[in-house]
Structure formats: C-alpha cells, structure tokens
Simulated assay, not measured.
Amino acid sequence: MRLILASNSPRRRQLLTDLGLSYEVRLKEVDETYPPELQRAAVAEYLAAHKASAYRADLRPGEVLLTADTIVCLDEQVLNKPVDDEDAVRMLTLLQGRAHDVYTGVCLLTGEGQQVVFSDQTRVHFRPLTEAEIRHYVQHYRPLDKAGAYGAQDWIGLVAVTRLEGSYFNVMGLPVHRVWEELQRLTGGQLLPGA
C-alpha cells in the first residue's frame, strides 16, 4: 500500500514523518466552502471528504489518499483561516480568555474505492491575552494559514494555552492516533513504519 497525502501543511507532513510512514504529497486546488447548515464536526468531515473527491479519479489500486481539514469553533461560530492580519487579530481577540473546540476531519480513500471519514475533537483553553500579545503573535508568526489564526505549537501556544482536553496533535492538524488506527484497519496492517 502507498500512502498519498493531499495537504500542503508542514505540520501534517511532520506528523506523518514522525509516525515513520513513507508517503507522497499530491496537491490540487479545491474549493473549501461548505453548506451553511453544517455545524462543528460535520464541517470538518465534509471538507475532508470534499477534498478527497477531487483526487478520486487519479488514485490507482494500492494507493491510500489522506485528506484533512481543521476548524476552530467558538460556541457555534466556525473560525477558518483568517483573510488578513486584522482578521487574525479579530479571531484571537474572540478566543482569548475562553475555551473553544478544534475539530479535524479526516478522509481516507483507497484506489479501490473504500472510504473512511471521521473527525476528532479537542477542547482548548486560552488564558486572557492583551492586545499587544495578540498583535505581537500575528506580526511575528503570520498565522494566516491556520484555522482560528493560531498554531498550538507556536509562541501563542506556549503563552496562552492553559489546558487541553483531547489530542494535542489534533490541534496541530492531524489526530494521528485515530489516523493510525483507521489506516491499520483499512489496509489490514500493511502500512507500517519504514515500509
């Protein structure tokens, strides 16, 4: 079995590398809009499956495609990637001093047409932040490619995250424990480190 990662995220690449899995990266531009009636985990799962559908015709037998999408939810509001610095400041201002949920949806699709879609949830608690701290982070760490305008592995994660309930790696963009389990189930244990 050959693993194909359809993501440009350096964090997802690093997590798969840390798992010891060999993989190939394939990229396509895919529209990331979703039906407005979807909420929370359903949004992340829809986007992951939607991304996978763009690759379906290109998959060959013996290949397993992995797509993922991470969203941040504050109450029922979905915070995707910020459009600019001021949008990032706005999002972080909303999140500071509160708890929010991070959902990562994952789709695994084989060249034979088997598909598994799932998501994982992590609750993240932020301490109150000053405007100066928020602006420092946005200016120096440029979180425009991150859902909710932050990376837990960045400076803001070090100074703002007080508690996590769930997987830290899910907040980074890939619930590797679930990915590993589902890959083993889907491939009959054929995807192993170094293989």
Rank of each mutant, 00 (worst) to 15 (best):
M1Y: 09
L3T: 12
L3I: 10
L5M: 11
L5G: 06
A6T: 09
A6G: 15
N8V: 08
P10L: 11
R11V: 05
R13D: 07
L15Y: 10
L16V: 04
T17K: 15
T17P: 01
D18N: 15
L19P: 01
G20C: 12
L21Q: 05
Y23V: 03
E24I: 02
R26Q: 15
L27N: 12
E29P: 02
E29V: 08
E29W: 05
D31N: 15
T33P: 00
T33M: 04
T33G: 10
E37P: 00
E37W: 14
L38W: 08
A42T: 05
A42G: 08
A42Y: 05
E45Y: 01
Y46V: 02
A48E: 08
A48W: 06
K51N: 07
K51Q: 03
A52K: 01
A52Q: 02
A52S: 10
S53K: 14
R56V: 08
A57D: 14
D58N: 05
D58I: 01
G62S: 06
L66R: 08
L66M: 14
A68S: 09
A68P: 00
T70L: 11
T70E: 10
T70V: 08
T70Q: 13
T70C: 11
I71Y: 01
L74D: 03
E76C: 01
E76H: 14
Q77F: 03
P82T: 00
D84I: 05
D85Y: 04
E86G: 04
A88H: 03
L92K: 06
R98C: 01
R98F: 02
A99H: 07
H100V: 02
D101M: 11
V102N: 07
V102W: 05
G105W: 02
G105Q: 07
G105Y: 04
V106D: 12
T110K: 03
G113D: 07
G113A: 05
Q114L: 08
Q115F: 00
V116W: 11
D120S: 15
T122Q: 09
T122V: 05
H125N: 12
R127C: 10
L129K: 12
I134Y: 07
V138G: 10
V138M: 06
Q139V: 00
H140T: 13
H140E: 14
R142M: 02
P143T: 06
P143M: 05
D145H: 04
A147C: 03
A147P: 03
Y150G: 02
A152F: 02
A152L: 14
D154A: 09
I156P: 07
L158Q: 11
L158I: 01
V159Q: 03
V159S: 02
A160F: 04
V161D: 02
E165Y: 11
E165Q: 15
N170C: 02
N170A: 04
M172F: 11
L174D: 12
H177K: 14
H177A: 15
H177W: 13
W180Q: 13
W180P: 00
E182C: 08
L186H: 08
G188D: 07
G189N: 13
G189M: 09
G189I: 07
G189A: 10
Q190S: 14
A195E: 15
A195K: 15
